[in-house]
Design a binder for these strands. Structure first.
Lengths: 104, 104
DNA sequence: TAATCATATCGAAGATTGTCTATTTGTCAA
DNA sequence: TTGACAAATAGACAATCTTCGATATGATTA
Protein backbone atom coordinates (compact mmCIF):
# COMPACT_ATOMS: atom_id res chain seq x y z
CA UNK A 1 0.00 0.00 0.00
CA UNK A 2 2.64 2.52 1.02
CA UNK A 3 5.49 1.06 -1.02
CA UNK A 4 8.66 3.04 -0.16
CA UNK A 5 10.04 2.60 -3.68
CA UNK A 6 6.88 3.81 -5.42
CA UNK A 7 6.69 6.73 -2.99
CA UNK A 8 10.33 7.72 -3.48
CA UNK A 9 10.06 7.53 -7.27
CA UNK A 10 6.95 9.68 -7.27
CA UNK A 11 8.56 12.50 -5.32
CA UNK A 12 12.01 12.17 -6.91
CA UNK A 13 11.56 14.99 -9.39
CA UNK A 14 11.92 18.73 -9.13
CA UNK A 15 8.81 19.49 -11.19
CA UNK A 16 6.67 17.18 -9.11
CA UNK A 17 7.94 18.62 -5.82
CA UNK A 18 7.11 22.10 -7.08
CA UNK A 19 3.62 20.94 -7.97
CA UNK A 20 3.30 19.30 -4.56
CA UNK A 21 4.29 22.54 -2.90
CA UNK A 22 1.76 24.50 -4.95
CA UNK A 23 -1.22 22.30 -4.13
CA UNK A 24 0.01 21.43 -0.67
CA UNK A 25 -2.48 23.62 1.13
CA UNK A 26 -5.09 24.49 -1.47
CA UNK A 27 -6.82 22.75 -4.34
CA UNK A 28 -5.87 23.97 -7.80
CA UNK A 29 -6.96 23.18 -11.36
CA UNK A 30 -4.53 21.92 -13.98
CA UNK A 31 -4.77 25.29 -15.70
CA UNK A 32 -3.89 27.15 -12.50
CA UNK A 33 -0.92 24.89 -11.82
CA UNK A 34 0.24 25.25 -15.42
CA UNK A 35 0.06 29.04 -15.13
CA UNK A 36 2.39 28.98 -12.14
CA UNK A 37 4.99 26.78 -13.84
CA UNK A 38 7.11 27.25 -16.97
CA UNK A 39 5.88 24.03 -18.53
CA UNK A 40 3.16 22.98 -20.95
CA UNK A 41 -0.22 21.66 -19.87
CA UNK A 42 0.43 18.08 -21.12
CA UNK A 43 3.62 17.99 -19.06
CA UNK A 44 1.74 19.08 -15.95
CA UNK A 45 -0.98 16.49 -16.61
CA UNK A 46 1.72 13.84 -16.98
CA UNK A 47 3.23 14.65 -13.59
CA UNK A 48 -0.16 14.88 -11.93
CA UNK A 49 -0.90 11.38 -13.24
CA UNK A 50 2.27 10.09 -11.61
CA UNK A 51 1.34 11.73 -8.30
CA UNK A 52 -2.19 10.34 -8.64
CA UNK A 53 -0.96 6.79 -9.30
CA UNK A 54 1.20 7.06 -6.19
CA UNK A 55 -1.84 8.13 -4.15
CA UNK A 56 -0.28 11.47 -3.35
CA UNK A 57 -3.03 13.76 -4.60
CA UNK A 58 -6.73 14.14 -3.97
CA UNK A 59 -8.81 14.73 -7.11
CA UNK A 60 -12.17 16.46 -7.41
CA UNK A 61 -13.86 16.76 -10.78
CA UNK A 62 -16.18 19.71 -11.03
CA UNK A 63 -17.76 20.43 -14.38
CA UNK A 64 -14.96 20.57 -16.88
CA UNK A 65 -12.35 21.44 -14.31
CA UNK A 66 -10.37 19.07 -12.13
CA UNK A 67 -9.06 20.18 -8.77
CA UNK A 68 -5.89 18.66 -7.40
CA UNK A 69 -4.58 18.90 -3.87
CA UNK A 70 -1.80 17.13 -2.03
CA UNK A 71 -2.79 14.23 0.19
CA UNK A 72 -0.87 15.33 3.26
CA UNK A 73 -2.03 12.41 5.33
CA UNK A 74 -0.77 9.83 2.88
CA UNK A 75 2.54 11.63 2.53
CA UNK A 76 2.96 11.58 6.28
CA UNK A 77 2.19 7.87 6.39
CA UNK A 78 4.79 7.22 3.70
CA UNK A 79 7.42 9.13 5.68
CA UNK A 80 6.48 7.12 8.74
CA UNK A 81 6.91 3.89 6.79
CA UNK A 82 10.34 5.01 5.59
CA UNK A 83 11.45 5.73 9.14
CA UNK A 84 10.09 2.43 10.41
CA UNK A 85 11.87 0.55 7.62
CA UNK A 86 15.21 2.27 7.65
CA UNK A 87 15.64 3.99 10.99
CA UNK A 88 14.36 1.53 13.57
CA UNK A 89 17.11 2.44 16.03
CA UNK A 90 16.60 6.16 15.73
CA UNK A 91 15.57 8.04 18.84
CA UNK A 92 12.03 8.66 17.71
CA UNK A 93 9.84 6.97 20.23
CA UNK A 94 7.47 4.19 19.28
CA UNK A 95 4.59 6.47 20.11
CA UNK A 96 5.79 9.03 17.65
CA UNK A 97 6.12 6.42 14.94
CA UNK A 98 2.64 5.27 15.86
CA UNK A 99 1.29 8.79 15.60
CA UNK A 100 2.95 9.19 12.23
CA UNK A 101 1.55 5.94 10.92
CA UNK A 102 -2.00 6.57 12.02
CA UNK A 103 -2.51 10.34 11.92
CA UNK A 104 -5.64 11.75 13.54
CA UNK B 1 21.70 20.44 3.55
CA UNK B 2 18.71 18.11 3.62
CA UNK B 3 17.48 18.82 0.10
CA UNK B 4 14.20 16.89 -0.37
CA UNK B 5 14.90 16.38 -4.09
CA UNK B 6 18.41 15.00 -3.57
CA UNK B 7 17.10 12.79 -0.79
CA UNK B 8 14.20 11.45 -2.86
CA UNK B 9 16.41 10.74 -5.85
CA UNK B 10 18.91 8.87 -3.71
CA UNK B 11 16.33 6.50 -2.28
CA UNK B 12 14.26 6.18 -5.47
CA UNK B 13 15.75 2.91 -6.60
CA UNK B 14 15.05 -0.69 -5.69
CA UNK B 15 18.72 -1.69 -5.55
CA UNK B 16 19.61 1.21 -3.26
CA UNK B 17 16.72 0.51 -0.91
CA UNK B 18 17.84 -3.13 -0.69
CA UNK B 19 21.35 -1.95 0.15
CA UNK B 20 19.94 0.47 2.72
CA UNK B 21 18.01 -2.35 4.32
CA UNK B 22 21.11 -4.54 4.45
CA UNK B 23 23.33 -1.99 6.15
CA UNK B 24 20.54 -0.42 8.13
CA UNK B 25 21.58 -1.95 11.44
CA UNK B 26 25.09 -3.24 10.88
CA UNK B 27 28.16 -2.12 9.02
CA UNK B 28 29.12 -4.17 5.98
CA UNK B 29 31.97 -4.16 3.47
CA UNK B 30 31.37 -3.73 -0.25
CA UNK B 31 32.26 -7.39 -0.72
CA UNK B 32 29.71 -8.50 1.87
CA UNK B 33 26.97 -6.36 0.33
CA UNK B 34 27.86 -7.65 -3.14
CA UNK B 35 27.63 -11.24 -1.90
CA UNK B 36 24.07 -10.64 -0.68
CA UNK B 37 22.90 -9.12 -3.97
CA UNK B 38 22.73 -10.48 -7.54
CA UNK B 39 24.81 -7.63 -8.94
CA UNK B 40 28.45 -6.98 -9.72
CA UNK B 41 30.85 -5.19 -7.37
CA UNK B 42 31.17 -2.07 -9.56
CA UNK B 43 27.38 -1.73 -9.60
CA UNK B 44 27.27 -1.92 -5.82
CA UNK B 45 30.08 0.64 -5.56
CA UNK B 46 28.15 2.90 -7.91
CA UNK B 47 25.05 2.81 -5.74
CA UNK B 48 27.04 3.25 -2.55
CA UNK B 49 28.60 6.38 -4.06
CA UNK B 50 25.12 7.79 -4.70
CA UNK B 51 24.07 7.05 -1.13
CA UNK B 52 27.33 8.56 0.13
CA UNK B 53 26.87 11.77 -1.91
CA UNK B 54 23.39 12.10 -0.43
CA UNK B 55 24.82 11.76 3.07
CA UNK B 56 22.87 8.59 3.70
CA UNK B 57 25.72 6.27 4.67
CA UNK B 58 28.50 6.31 7.21
CA UNK B 59 31.85 5.15 5.88
CA UNK B 60 34.76 3.64 7.79
CA UNK B 61 37.93 2.66 5.98
CA UNK B 62 39.83 -0.09 7.71
CA UNK B 63 42.87 -1.51 5.99
CA UNK B 64 41.81 -2.44 2.51
CA UNK B 65 38.19 -2.82 3.46
CA UNK B 66 35.55 -0.14 3.65
CA UNK B 67 32.59 -0.51 5.96
CA UNK B 68 29.28 1.08 5.05
CA UNK B 69 26.29 1.58 7.31
CA UNK B 70 23.08 3.53 6.93
CA UNK B 71 22.96 6.95 8.57
CA UNK B 72 19.65 6.48 10.34
CA UNK B 73 19.75 9.90 11.95
CA UNK B 74 20.13 11.73 8.67
CA UNK B 75 17.39 9.67 7.07
CA UNK B 76 15.08 10.58 9.92
CA UNK B 77 15.92 14.25 9.52
CA UNK B 78 15.17 14.05 5.79
CA UNK B 79 11.78 12.49 6.49
CA UNK B 80 11.10 15.25 8.99
CA UNK B 81 11.98 17.87 6.41
CA UNK B 82 9.63 16.25 3.91
CA UNK B 83 6.77 16.35 6.39
CA UNK B 84 7.49 19.94 7.34
CA UNK B 85 7.58 20.95 3.68
CA UNK B 86 4.60 19.05 2.38
CA UNK B 87 2.38 18.17 5.29
CA UNK B 88 2.28 21.28 7.48
CA UNK B 89 -1.39 20.80 8.27
CA UNK B 90 -1.05 17.20 9.21
CA UNK B 91 -1.86 16.27 12.76
CA UNK B 92 1.69 15.62 13.81
CA UNK B 93 2.39 18.01 16.59
CA UNK B 94 5.06 20.66 16.34
CA UNK B 95 6.96 18.91 19.07
CA UNK B 96 7.05 15.73 17.10
CA UNK B 97 8.33 17.56 14.05
CA UNK B 98 10.90 19.17 16.29
CA UNK B 99 11.98 15.83 17.67
CA UNK B 100 12.31 14.49 14.15
CA UNK B 101 14.38 17.42 12.98
CA UNK B 102 16.79 17.38 15.87
CA UNK B 103 17.01 13.80 17.08
CA UNK B 104 18.72 13.20 20.42
C1' DT C 1 -25.89 21.53 -32.86
C1' DA C 2 -21.63 23.94 -33.19
C1' DA C 3 -18.00 26.25 -31.00
C1' DT C 4 -15.12 26.61 -27.07
C1' DC C 5 -12.74 25.47 -23.01
C1' DA C 6 -10.32 22.06 -19.63
C1' DT C 7 -7.92 18.02 -19.34
C1' DA C 8 -5.98 13.62 -20.88
C1' DT C 9 -3.50 10.74 -24.11
C1' DC C 10 -0.21 9.63 -27.95
C1' DG C 11 4.21 9.39 -30.12
C1' DA C 12 8.75 11.16 -30.53
C1' DA C 13 13.23 13.57 -29.20
C1' DG C 14 16.66 14.21 -25.89
C1' DA C 15 18.50 13.54 -21.28
C1' DT C 16 19.32 10.70 -17.33
C1' DT C 17 20.06 6.34 -15.08
C1' DG C 18 21.34 1.38 -14.10
C1' DT C 19 24.16 -2.20 -15.32
C1' DC C 20 27.98 -4.41 -17.29
C1' DT C 21 33.14 -5.41 -18.54
C1' DA C 22 37.66 -3.74 -18.29
C1' DT C 23 40.88 -1.27 -15.80
C1' DT C 24 42.96 1.46 -12.04
C1' DT C 25 44.12 2.52 -7.32
C1' DG C 26 45.29 1.32 -2.81
C1' DT C 27 46.54 -2.05 0.89
C1' DC C 28 48.33 -6.17 2.84
C1' DA C 29 51.23 -10.51 2.93
C1' DA C 30 54.92 -13.54 1.21
C1' DT D 1 59.15 -6.13 -4.34
C1' DT D 2 55.87 -9.03 -6.18
C1' DG D 3 51.32 -11.08 -6.02
C1' DA D 4 46.73 -11.03 -4.34
C1' DC D 5 42.78 -8.89 -2.64
C1' DA D 6 39.23 -4.79 -1.90
C1' DA D 7 37.17 -1.02 -3.78
C1' DA D 8 36.69 2.79 -7.14
C1' DT D 9 36.57 4.62 -11.75
C1' DA D 10 35.93 4.74 -16.93
C1' DG D 11 33.40 3.78 -20.95
C1' DA D 12 29.56 1.57 -23.39
C1' DC D 13 24.89 0.17 -23.94
C1' DA D 14 20.02 -0.42 -22.93
C1' DA D 15 16.19 1.10 -20.40
C1' DT D 16 13.69 4.66 -18.31
C1' DC D 17 12.15 9.39 -17.78
C1' DT D 18 11.02 14.31 -18.93
C1' DT D 19 9.34 17.20 -22.08
C1' DC D 20 7.12 18.64 -26.16
C1' DG D 21 3.58 19.27 -30.18
C1' DA D 22 -0.46 17.23 -31.97
C1' DT D 23 -4.67 15.28 -31.09
C1' DA D 24 -8.61 13.18 -28.60
C1' DT D 25 -12.17 13.32 -25.02
C1' DG D 26 -15.57 15.39 -22.24
C1' DA D 27 -18.28 19.29 -20.56
C1' DT D 28 -20.21 23.89 -21.03
C1' DT D 29 -22.15 27.80 -23.66
C1' DA D 30 -24.14 30.19 -27.69
Amino acid sequence: MTDPIAFAKAIADDTRQRIMKLCCCERLTVTEITAKMQLTQPTISHHLAILRDAGLVNIERQGRETYYSLNQTFLTVCCGTLMMQFAPNEHVTATVKQELLMPE
